[in-house]
Amino acid sequence: SGEEFIAMYTYESSEQGDLTFQQGDVILVTKKDGDWWTGTVGDKAGVFPSNYVRLKD
């Protein structure tokens, strides 16, 4: 389980282990570690910068 966040911006990365997503995607955040959080979008999982998302209303 985790908290749902909304992507405010598209995040694209070629780094292994990074979670890429489109603006407006719902991200289920499973771990918060400083500026880099872990989460899932659909069947993808990985880390992403926390300043790209906001808490879902």
Rank of each mutant, 00 (worst) to 15 (best):
S1N: 15
S1G: 13
S1H: 09
S1L: 12
G2T: 15
G2F: 15
G2W: 07
G2Q: 12
G2E: 09
E3A: 06
E3V: 11
E3C: 07
E3F: 09
E3H: 05
E4H: 05
E4S: 08
E4F: 07
E4P: 05
E4R: 07
E4A: 06
F5C: 07
F5D: 02
F5S: 08
F5G: 10
F5Y: 15
F5I: 07
F5V: 06
F5P: 01
F5N: 04
I6F: 08
I6G: 04
I6P: 00
I6K: 05
I6M: 06
I6N: 05
I6R: 06
I6Y: 06
A7H: 01
A7N: 03
A7F: 00
A7T: 01
A7I: 02
A7P: 00
M8W: 04
M8I: 06
M8K: 07
M8N: 06
T10S: 09
T10E: 09
T10G: 13
T10A: 06
T10M: 07
Y11C: 06
Y11H: 11
Y11Q: 04
Y11A: 04
Y11T: 03
E12V: 08
E12P: 06
E12S: 13
S13K: 05
S13N: 01
S13E: 05
S13T: 08
S13Y: 01
S13L: 00
S13R: 05
S14H: 13
S14K: 12
S14Y: 10
S14A: 10
S14F: 06
S14L: 12
S14I: 00
E15A: 14
E15L: 11
E15F: 11
E15V: 13
E15S: 14
E15R: 14
E15T: 13
E15K: 15
E15N: 15
Q16V: 10
Q16D: 10
Q16F: 06
Q16S: 13
Q16K: 15
G17P: 05
G17H: 11
G17M: 07
G17C: 12
D18Y: 14
D18V: 12
D18A: 13
D18C: 14
D18W: 07
L19Y: 00
L19W: 00
L19M: 04
L19S: 01
L19A: 01
L19H: 01
L19D: 00
T20G: 08
T20A: 13
T20F: 03
T20C: 13
T20R: 09
T20E: 12
F21N: 02
F21A: 02
F21D: 02
F21R: 02
F21E: 01
F21P: 04
F21Y: 01
F21V: 01
Q22F: 10
Q22S: 13
Q22C: 11
Q22A: 11
Q22E: 07
Q22R: 13
Q23R: 13
Q23N: 05
Q23Y: 08
Q23I: 09
Q23C: 12
Q23S: 09
G24P: 00
G24Y: 04
G24K: 00
D25M: 04
D25R: 00
D25L: 00
V26M: 12
V26N: 06
V26L: 13
V26Y: 06
V26T: 15
V26P: 09
V26C: 07
V26E: 12
V26I: 14
I27V: 13
I27R: 01
I27P: 09
I27A: 02
I27W: 02
I27Q: 03
L28D: 04
L28G: 05
L28V: 13
L28M: 11
L28H: 15
L28T: 11
L28Y: 07
V29F: 00
V29D: 03
V29T: 03
V29A: 04
V29Y: 02
V29L: 00
V29S: 02
V29M: 00
V29N: 05
V29P: 04
T30K: 06
T30F: 09
T30C: 07
T30M: 08
T30A: 07
T30G: 04
T30Q: 13
T30W: 12
K31E: 14
K31Q: 14
K31T: 08
K31V: 08
K31S: 14
K31M: 01
K31A: 12
K31N: 15
K31P: 11
K31C: 15
K31R: 09
K32V: 02
K32H: 14
K32N: 09
K32E: 10
K32S: 06
K32P: 07
K32I: 03
K32Q: 15
K32M: 15
D33C: 15
D33Q: 09
D33L: 08
D33A: 11
D33Y: 13
D33T: 11
G34C: 06
G34F: 06
G34P: 07
G34L: 05
G34S: 05
D35N: 06
D35Y: 08
D35L: 11
D35E: 13
D35W: 14
D35C: 06
D35S: 15
W36N: 08
W36D: 06
W36A: 10
W36S: 11
W37C: 07
W37T: 01
W37N: 02
W37H: 05
W37V: 03
W37P: 03
W37S: 04
T38P: 03
T38M: 08
T38W: 11
T38V: 10
T38N: 12
T38C: 09
T38D: 03
G39S: 00
G39E: 00
G39W: 00
G39N: 00
G39V: 00
T40L: 07
T40Q: 14
V41K: 15
V41C: 06
V41S: 14
V41R: 12
G42C: 06
G42S: 08
G42P: 02
G42K: 04
G42L: 08
G42R: 10
G42V: 03
G42Q: 13
D43W: 04
D43V: 11
D43R: 10
D43N: 14
D43C: 10
D43E: 10
D43T: 14
K44P: 01
K44Q: 15
K44H: 05
K44V: 06
K44S: 08
A45T: 14
A45K: 05
A45F: 03
A45L: 11
A45V: 14
A45Y: 14
A45G: 10
A45N: 15
A45Q: 10
A45R: 13
G46L: 02
G46W: 00
G46M: 00
G46P: 00
G46Y: 00
G46N: 00
V47M: 10
V47Y: 05
V47Q: 11
V47H: 12
V47W: 08
V47S: 14
F48C: 01
F48M: 02
F48H: 02
P49N: 06
P49T: 03
P49D: 01
P49M: 01
P49G: 01
S50W: 00
S50M: 09
S50V: 04
S50I: 05
N51S: 13
N51E: 10
N51F: 07
Y52M: 09
Y52W: 02
Y52R: 09
Y52V: 05
Y52S: 08
Y52L: 10
Y52H: 05
Y52D: 04
V53S: 03
V53G: 02
V53W: 01
V53F: 00
V53K: 00
V53R: 01
V53N: 01
V53D: 02
V53E: 03
R54N: 09
R54G: 08
R54C: 10
R54Q: 13
R54S: 04
R54K: 04
L55R: 13
L55Q: 14
L55M: 09
L55Y: 02
L55E: 10
L55V: 10
L55S: 15
K56R: 08
K56H: 08
K56W: 08
K56M: 15
K56S: 07
K56E: 07
K56L: 08
D57V: 03
D57Q: 15
D57G: 14
